[in-house]
Design a protein around this nucleic acid. Structure first.
Length: 591
RNA sequence: GGGGUUUUAGCUCAGUUGGUUAGAGUACCUGCCUGUCACGCAGGGGGCCGCGGGUUCAAGUCCCGUAAACCCCGCCA
């Protein structure tokens, strides 16, 4: 009976007069007594079916007995609606099915929330009944477009000579980076697999194997706390290429992204993605993932206040702090309450306050203006290029805190003042990341990207005279791609020389023995004719979130987890039986 | 580990200064209705006010604790 099916949303005026059968869910029922209208919904859309009791009383009664979300088969003739009965609100609104039969294939309980998306439903309930939520238009669109994204990615990369190769999910736990999800091994008691944070090592191995260009749309796992753009399992479009430069990789990615934007949103990106130096990003925006939709830039004012009589400023400078600020164009929208709230809000970034003054017509007013000398005033006007009425905010602390504070506040204030153009898609490459950074607390170096990232060739000699101070001068051949202030991908050229790789491990405090235990296969492989290679990984979920303008990546994933990492539908994670634990030689320690 | 917001009918929400029997819209049930399209009209049922303590003559409302969801800091090479 399921042969010769028509899809609701695909019927059109060209089917006029044709006898069709549709299968779907009762989206809505309108019973007018003698005539019953059912809107039938399937994956493609909605069509109206008409049951006329003077034509078939029995069919009309069956139609009337249906309820929301019943599954039905409806057969009838497609017919054009008379002009006054056309519904312009749905794509199939100029036709309807004049039903000759209806069969109820399954009943449904009353759904816990409406399937049409006229009102927002609590996410907790949506996640519990995700199968119903996925019937809703927004989720359906997200899932279908995600499919499209994966399809066009496969097409694009395949046509650029990439080969899709799967890598293991059961992996070896490695030091560095995010916390691993561990999987106990029954056969090897007391030992564990780790789920991959990314297929990093395997894709490099594939380059040594000569596959030349690899890609995979792959799940990655990181056992870290969740955010609206972070889930414990997420999907990467992962790539690795041999005989390649950063520029070549960036061009390939740019092509892919532009194609994706075109096919998913219908929009054309008519600029080539700007490339910004890491140092410039930090100094202008305080972050390595700047949102350039907001033009407000950070300016360092430390030099202006060296001899300041304002104790808060001068004492901070004399203890190694910095003073930076942002100028926000504003003619009165920023209220006293808002600026007061801000000075409290910045505490979350470690800042102690958020001093400000107002600029208007050549004069400084309010806030800390009374502590600013005439000379400092002139320099500030020049530094921030003050012309329009503005409010200037400062952050005074250690550089890291200042950067974090101003990076967040320039966006928060821009949002509060409605200065962000929601329709912009600002792509940006950030390059020339430092290779390593020194952590004061642990007294050791960490890889900024990962331990396999190649330094800029000219900087390799600096590795021999490394100190915590000059570490940041050594740049990596690494690049991130940023969209509207969100990192949507990153990659690097890798080390293909085993002695350089050993040297880097050494610097990172990974002993020769440890390196041998953890990555011997990579070090070995690098000695058997490893080609120069590099790669990149794109965050599929984040790209979908941004292109579809959704508030979180959960809105573009079929079955996401809550912030505590639980699945509201299946109720994972869950306890396991004593037998299961015994088999794995695992004992739970109660705390 | 920490900060914030929220939690009242199936769903979305209101609930004043602590004071009668906790409301609205929608959904649901019943009936009427032959061109609706968020159909309409009439009637009806539906509440552990997240949970546990406390203050009070009296708590949805005040206090303490706790749970969950969400946002954020830390964390995420």
């Amino acid at each position: 009976m399921f042969n010769n099916r028509s899809y609701c949303g695909e019927l059109g005026i060209e089917d006029n007069g044709k006898e069709v059968t549709v299968f779907g869910w009762v989206d809505r029922k309108r019973d007018l007594g003698g005539v019953v209208f059912l809107e039938i919904r399937d994956v493609t859309g909605i069509i109206q079916a008409v049951f006329d009791s003077s034509f078939s009383k029995e069919n009309a009664e069956i139609a009337d007995s249906t309820r929301s979300e019943f599954v039905v088969a409806v057969t009838g003739k497609v017919r054009e609606r008379s002009p006054e009965t056309i519904n312009p609100n749905i794509p199939t609104g100029n036709i309807e099915i004049f039903a000759s039969s209806i069969e109820i294939l399954n009943k449904s309980l009353v759904p816990p929330f409406p399937i049409d998306i006229r009102e927002n439903v609590n996410e907790e309930v949506r996640l519990k009944y995700r199968y119903l939520d996925l019937r809703r238009e927004d989720m359906k669109e997200a899932i279908l477009k995600r499919h499209k994204m994966m399809q066009l990615t496969r097409e694009y990369l395949s046509s650029h000579r990439f080969i899709e190769i799967e890598t293991p999910i059961l992996n070896k736990s490695t030091p560095e980076g995010a916390r691993d999800f561990l999987v106990p091994s029954r056969i090897n008691k007391g030992e564990f697999y780790a789920l991959p944070q990314s297929p990093q090592l395997f894709k490099q191995i594939l380059m040594v194997s000569g596959f030349d260009r690899y890609f995979q749309i792959v799940k990655c796992f990181r056992d870290e706390d969740l955010r609206n753009d972070r889930q414990p399992e997420f999907t990467q479009i992962d790539m690795e290429l041999s005989f390649i430069t950063p520029k070549m990789i960036m061009e390939i990615i740019e092509g892919l992204i532009k194609k994706a934007v075109k096919e998913l949103t219908g929009r054309e990106i008519d600029y080539s993605f700007p490339v910004m130096d890491y140092d410039e990003a930090i100094s202008k925006y305080g972050t390595d993932a700047p949102d350039t939709r907001v033009s407000i830039e950070i300016r360092d004012c430390s030099d202006i206040f060296v001899n300041s009589s304002f104790n808060v400023f001068s004492s901070s400078l004399s203890t190694g702090g910095v003073i930076k600020g942002i100028a926000v164009p504003d003619s009165g929208k920023l209220s006293r309450k808002m600026t007061d709230d801000y000075s409290d809000y910045v505490r979350k970034f470690g800042a102690k306050g958020f001093p400000m003054f107002k600029y208007n017509d050549g004069k400084l007013e309010g806030g800390i203006s009374k502590f600013i000398s005439e000379d400092e005033k002139l320099k500030l006007i020049e530094r921030f290029d003050l012309k329009e009425p503005s409010v200037v905010f400062f952050s005074v602390d250690k550089e890291q805190i200042v950067n974090a504070t101003l990076a967040h506040m320039r966006l928060k204030i821009a949002r509060d003042l409605d200065l962000i153009d929601d329709n912009k898609l600002n792509f940006l490459w950030v390059t020339n990341f430092p290779l390593i950074e020194y952590h004061e607390e642990d007294r050791r170096f960490y890889a900024v990207h990962h331990p396999f990232t190649a330094p800029v060739a000219d900087h390799i000699p600096l590795l021999d005279s490394l100190t915590p101070e000059n570490a940041k001068k050594i740049k990596a051949q690494a690049y991130d791609i940023v969209l509207n202030g969100v990192e949507i991908g990153g990659g690097s050229i890798r080390i293909h020389d085993s002695s350089l790789q050993s040297k880097i491990f050494n610097i990172l405090g990974i002993s020769e023995e440890e390196a041998r235990v953890k990555f011997s296969f990579l070090l070995d492989a690098l000695q058997y004719g490893a080609p120069p290679h590099g790669g990149i990984a794109l965050g599929l979920d984040r790209i979908m979130m941004l292109l579809l303008k959704r508030s979180s990546i959960r809105e573009v994933m079929a079955f996401p987890k809550t912030q505590k990492g639980q699945c509201m539908m299946s109720e994972a994670p869950s306890p396991v039986t004593e037998e299961q634990l015994n088999e794995l030689s695992i004992r739970i320690v109660k705390k």
